[in-house]
Amino acid sequence: MIRIAAVGDVHVDKDVVGRYRPALEELPDRADVLLIAGDLTRHGTVDEAKCFATEFGGLGVPVVVVLGNHDHQSDRQDDVTRVLTDSGITVLEGAATVLKIGGHRLGIAGTKGFGGGFKGACASNFGEREMKDFVGTAERYADALRDALRSVQVDALVALTHYAPVPETLAGEPLEIFAFLGCYQLGQAIDDAPTALALHGHAHHGSERGRTPGGVPVRNVAHPVIKQAYNVYQLLSGTVDTKDTQLANV
C-alpha cells in the first residue's frame, strides 16, 4: 500500500506561512509522500519560494513538486527551483523520481504542462508563428512527460502536472477558457505509459475526478477544489508491505 498526499495551487507568500503547518505536521501518520501540483507561489519570486520551503519543507515525508504558471511570472523559475531543491524538495520538469515505500517502488513523473485545448476545441500547430509557438510549447511539455513516465520501472506510476490532461476535471470552469487550462496531449502522454494516477491543479473552479481516454484516474487537487490542506490517495491496496527495500519490484 502507498498513500499519496496531494494538493496544488497553494500560492504561498508571507501571509500564508503557518496556515498549512498544523495539517502538514500530521502528514507522516497519514501519507508516505506529498505531491504538489504547481502554483507553489504567487509571483514566482525567490522570497516566495523561501516562504513555500518554510511551510512545506522538513515534513518527515518526501515532498515532490512541479512548478505552475504563477511560479514563472517573475521569470525566476530556475532560482525558485534552486531554493526548493536546496530545501530538500524534489522539483520535476520533464523528469521522474523513484521512491521506495514499504518495499514498493513509487515512480513520479512531472511537468508543468501547458494549454491548447481538448478534442473538438483544440489549437493547431498552424498559421502565425505565435500560434505555432503556443501549440509547440504544449507538445514539448507533453513529450517530456511521456519520456519521463517511460523512463522508470516501478510498481506504481503517478503523473504530476499543473495543467489538466482531461476536460472532465475542468467542469465548472467557463468552457471558453478550457484551452488555457490544459491540453489533450498531456492525456495522451499519460496513456502511453502504465500510469496508475494523474494529479493536476490550475483549475480552481473545476471538478475533482476524471479519467483519461485510456482509463487512467485523474484528480484535480487544486486547493480551492479539494477545500482542505491535502487529499490522500491510496495505491497498491492489498499488496504486502515490507521494510525490505530488496523486495522492491517483486
Partner: peptide
C-alpha cells in the same frame, strides 16, 4: 478563504 484542515478520508484508487 480556502480551508486548510487535514483530511478525514482516504480515497482508494483502482
Amino acid at each position: 478563504i480556502t480551508r486548510t484542515q487535514a483530511p478525514a478520508e482516504v480515497e482508494e484508487i483502482s
